[in-house]
């Protein structure tokens, strides 16, 4: 059990042409207070849907949560009324998105957008809210904070907008910040600034961060613990050092291997054959088996469970205790 957030057996499906397609299928993980946890995976692995499910922001779309528990400080968020959920969103759990332009209201001044949440959640007076807003802007490294309060989002650059988004998210001092690809739309030098800022906020205020990204570099840079997702499932979970040093799941290994790394020029990059399976046509058994170099017979027939090994977890037949598969594999060699 983790002391801030526990996600258990989360299942989210999307309705597509009268067909229910599971995008997130039985995801388990947790976050401790003040921890930075990363979820990595390629597009379509369900990492963003997981975060939207935690925030229960899927209501207006065709997706809905089918099963599971999301316990935040002892309370199951999935049981809450929409009204009580609103009190948690923004105040206890805040979220920032990939595209800072579309997630800010283009016709509202920055100051007003910031103060909205402060007045709503912290019940501050207008003057107090304004002061708090300016302080928050300063704390995320925005110069001329007083002037920025009266500007519109389009007057700011991408990096500044993302800082404003972070300021809005941090203004009510949430205990958990969910960041969905916060630096993907930004340039590298700006990305470095934003990542630095997020690390600082975590160490200064003890905010826990759930970092959703496809970029292994970002994960290595900021996260304490990493969850690797593939085809709607958690395939591996480990501390960041363990994960990069000794990845267990073949997918994690391949993913790390296929990233081009500065200073390691190779004539040929390692590449994983094939593609992420379509949610409509999931393979039986392990979802990675068709692309896996170590696939055994059992992998195509039966899906492995997420099993713990000391402090880490993985979902692979290669490491299942007293499994039939390993013997088969050894036998075949």
């Amino acid at each position: 059990m983790y002391d801030l957030l526990n996600v258990k057996g989360l299942k989210t499906a999307f309705k597509n042409n009268n067909q229910r397609v599971s995008v997130v299928n039985g995801v388990d993980f947790g976050i401790n207070k003040g921890e930075i946890v990363g979820i990595v995976g390629e597009s379509g692995c369900g990492k963003s849907v997981t975060s939207l499910s935690i925030m229960r922001l899927l209501h207006d779309t065709t997706g809905d949560i089918q099963d599971g528990k999301v316990t935040f400080k002892g309370e199951n968020l999935l049981d809450l009324s929409e009204r009580s959920m609103r009190k948690i969103r923004g105040k206890e759990i805040a979220m920032i998105f990939q595209e800072p332009m579309t997630s800010l209201n283009p016709v509202m001044k920055i100051g007003k957008q910031l103060m909205q949440g402060i007045i709503l959640h912290l019940k501050y007076s207008k003057e107090k809210a304004k002061k708090h807003a300016i302080d928050t802007l300063k704390s995320v490294g925005i110069p001329r904070a007083e002037d920025i309060m009266n500007e519109y989002p389009h007057q700011l650059s991408g990096g500044m907008r993302q800082r404003v988004m972070i300021a809005i998210a941090m203004s009510c001092e949430p205990e958990l910040l969910i960041a969905d690809e916060p630096t993907t739309a930004l340039d590298v030098t700006i990305q470095a600034q934003i990542l630095e800022l997020m690390k600082r906020l975590q160490s200064d205020r003890g905010t826990a961060i759930l970092m959703i990204t496809h970029d292994l570099g970002v994960v290595a840079e900021v996260c304490d613990r990493v969850i690797v997702m593939y085809a709607g499932r958690v395939v591996e979970e480990a501390s960041v050092d363990e994960l990069f040093e000794s990845p267990r799941h073949p997918y994690t290994k391949d993913l790390i291997e296929s990233v081009p790394k500065i200073g390691e020029r190779k004539s040929r990059l390692y590449s994983i054959p094939g593609h992420v399976p379509n949610p409509n046509q999931m393979p039986n058994g392990c979802k990675f088996a068709p692309r896996c170099q170590h696939a055994m017979e059992i992998c195509f027939n039966k899906e492995p469970e997420l099993t713990s090994e000391e402090k880490r977890k993985h979902r692979c037949w290669l490491y299942q205790q007293n499994n039939v598969g390993r013997e088969q594999n050894l036998g075949s060699k």
Partner: peptide, 13 residues
């Protein structure tokens, strides 16, 4: 130099 040093390296060590 700055551009190179800003690239996140996928190795926490």
């Amino acid at each position: 130099q700055a551009l190179l040093s800003a690239v996140p390296i996928p190795n926490p060590k």
